[in-house]
């Protein structure tokens, strides 16, 4: 049972009994509060920054695109921390300081505060625009740089396997996807039945395979490795495509150009 229920019978006027504070006292009180909140916010933000930079968010990354994506993520993380701590600190401070501890009174009738509202709007607007420009547009432009491929691989998704065709040599495989290091690779992705999604976690690239159209995505691998060394090096279907969806994957091997050429030759023969 609520301890306020006894007041319910009284006319609303009577419940109103807030303390009237003199102007000077109120002002210094507000200043103190703001100082405390400000300091707490700073501390929380620094701690937050320490935490998010100390923790390694990203799985194994092996491509130029992975660097861009991870940088964008880290930047967003740094921007998110002060926002989150601000809201949490202000709410937390209010919860600690501004509790009604049985006095049964109303708070001051503050309806709005021009400075605070305008400041808040300005900050959120500026932040949104900043986020749009960087890492949004800038990251996207970086991903789209170097649109000329050195190697084209046709990827065909069908339930529930991937088929890779190396465009120039015509080599075809349903096994491990072999890609050479430091080579600009374009994947031309298509599907024969339903929608799949061509995703290589270690490369941070993903593009749907849609029946009827050919979609493309580009990547430059920067680290050697195989599925056995890091299971992020796999082609994984990321769009639900039926019963075999979870197991629609193959390994990816990033090899040196010499090894790649040798493999290509051996497979073509």
């Amino acid at each position: 049972m609520s301890r306020y229920s006894s007041k319910a019978g009284r006319p609303l006027h009577d419940v109103v009994a807030f303390r009237i504070v003199s102007g000077g006292e109120q002002e210094s009180n507000t200043r103190n509060r703001l100082v405390v909140v400000g300091v707490a916010w700073l501390i929380a933000t620094v701690l937050g920054w320490w935490a998010v930079t100390a923790y390694d968010w990203h799985p194994f990354g092996a491509s130029r695109e992975a660097r861009i994506t991870d940088e964008a993520f880290d930047l967003l993380m740094l921007m998110a921390v002060p926002i989150a701590t601000f809201v949490l600190v202000v709410i937390g401070y209010s919860l600690l300081r501004d509790r009604d501890r049985g006095q049964d009174v109303d708070g001051p009738p503050i309806r709005t505060n021009r400075t605070f509202v305008v400041g808040w709007l300005a900050v959120t607007t500026i932040l949104s625009i900043v986020v749009i420009i960087t890492p949004g547009f800038s990251g996207l432009d970086e991903l789209r740089a170097y649109p000329e491929p050195d190697l084209v691989i046709d990827v065909k998704g069908e339930r529930w396997s991937w088929e890779y065709t190396y465009a120039e040599s015509g080599v075809q495989t349903r096994g491990t996807l072999m890609v050479p290091i430091d080579t600009r690779i374009m994947f031309r992705i298509s599907s024969t039945d339903v929608i799949h999604s061509f995703w290589i976690p270690a490369f941070r690239i993903k593009m749907d395979a849609v029946p009827g159209i050919i979609t493309t995505t580009m990547v430059t691998a920067e680290k050697l490795g195989t599925f056995e060394s890091a299971d992020e090096l796999r082609v994984q279907c990321a769009e639900l495509c039926g019963v075999g969806h979870a197991r629609m994957w193959t390994g990816v091997s990033v090899v040196t150009e010499a090894e790649f050429d040798a493999w290509l030759e051996a497979s073509a023969g």
Binding site: V90, D98, G107, V117, W120
Partner: peptide
């Protein structure tokens, strides 16, 4: 959030 935070500030919060 602006509205929520501003309302809590200086309130007489009852944690029901």
């Amino acid at each position: 959030f602006l509205s929520a935070v501003g309302t809590l500030w200086l309130g007489k919060i009852r944690l029901e």
